[in-house]
Amino acid sequence: MTQALATGADAIALRVAAVIDPVFALIDGWQQELERLLADDPEPRAADLDPAIASTVAAELDRAGTLITGAGFVAAPGYLADAPWHLAWWLSDANTFRPAPGGGIRRLEAVSDPDSEAFRDYTTLEWWRVPERTGTRHLTGPYVDYLCTDDYTVTVTTPVTVGGEMVGLVGADMYVARLEQVLLPVLREATQPCTVVNASGRIVASTDAHRATGALLRLEGLAEMLAPVRASGGAVAPTDAATLPGGATVVPCGDTSLALVVE
Results as ranks from 00 to 15, higher is better:
residue 5 L to G: 00
residue 10 D to I: 00
residue 16 V to C: 13
residue 18 A to K: 09
residue 18 A to V: 04
residue 19 V to H: 05
residue 20 I to Y: 07
residue 23 V to D: 11
residue 27 I to K: 02
residue 32 Q to W: 00
residue 32 Q to T: 08
residue 34 L to I: 10
residue 37 L to P: 00
residue 37 L to W: 06
residue 37 L to Q: 10
residue 38 L to F: 08
residue 40 D to F: 10
residue 44 P to F: 08
residue 45 R to I: 09
residue 47 A to Y: 05
residue 48 D to A: 15
residue 51 P to R: 02
residue 52 A to V: 14
residue 56 T to I: 05
residue 62 D to I: 01
residue 65 G to W: 05
residue 66 T to A: 09
residue 68 I to A: 12
residue 74 V to S: 07
residue 77 P to G: 04
residue 95 N to V: 08
residue 95 N to Y: 03
residue 101 P to W: 12
residue 105 I to W: 04
residue 106 R to H: 03
residue 106 R to G: 02
residue 107 R to L: 04
residue 109 E to A: 14
residue 109 E to D: 15
residue 115 D to A: 14
residue 119 F to P: 01
residue 121 D to V: 03
residue 121 D to K: 01
residue 122 Y to D: 09
residue 122 Y to M: 04
residue 127 W to P: 07
residue 128 W to Q: 04
residue 135 G to V: 09
residue 138 H to K: 06
residue 143 Y to I: 12
residue 146 Y to P: 01
residue 147 L to I: 15
residue 148 C to L: 11
residue 149 T to H: 05
residue 150 D to P: 05
residue 154 V to R: 05
residue 156 V to G: 01
residue 158 T to I: 12
residue 159 P to D: 03
residue 164 G to R: 00
residue 166 M to P: 02
residue 166 M to G: 01
residue 168 G to S: 02
residue 169 L to V: 10
residue 171 G to S: 06
residue 171 G to M: 07
residue 176 V to I: 03
residue 178 R to Q: 13
residue 180 E to C: 13
residue 182 V to Y: 09
residue 184 L to E: 14
residue 184 L to V: 15
residue 186 V to A: 02
residue 193 P to E: 11
residue 195 T to P: 12
residue 197 V to P: 10
residue 200 S to W: 13
residue 201 G to A: 11
residue 213 T to Q: 13
residue 215 A to N: 09
residue 217 L to R: 06
residue 217 L to K: 06
residue 217 L to F: 05
residue 218 R to E: 12
residue 218 R to W: 00
residue 219 L to P: 06
residue 224 E to C: 04
residue 224 E to H: 08
residue 230 R to Y: 09
residue 232 S to N: 08
residue 241 A to K: 04
residue 241 A to T: 09
residue 246 G to M: 05
residue 252 P to H: 08
residue 258 L to D: 07
residue 260 L to D: 01
residue 263 E to S: 15
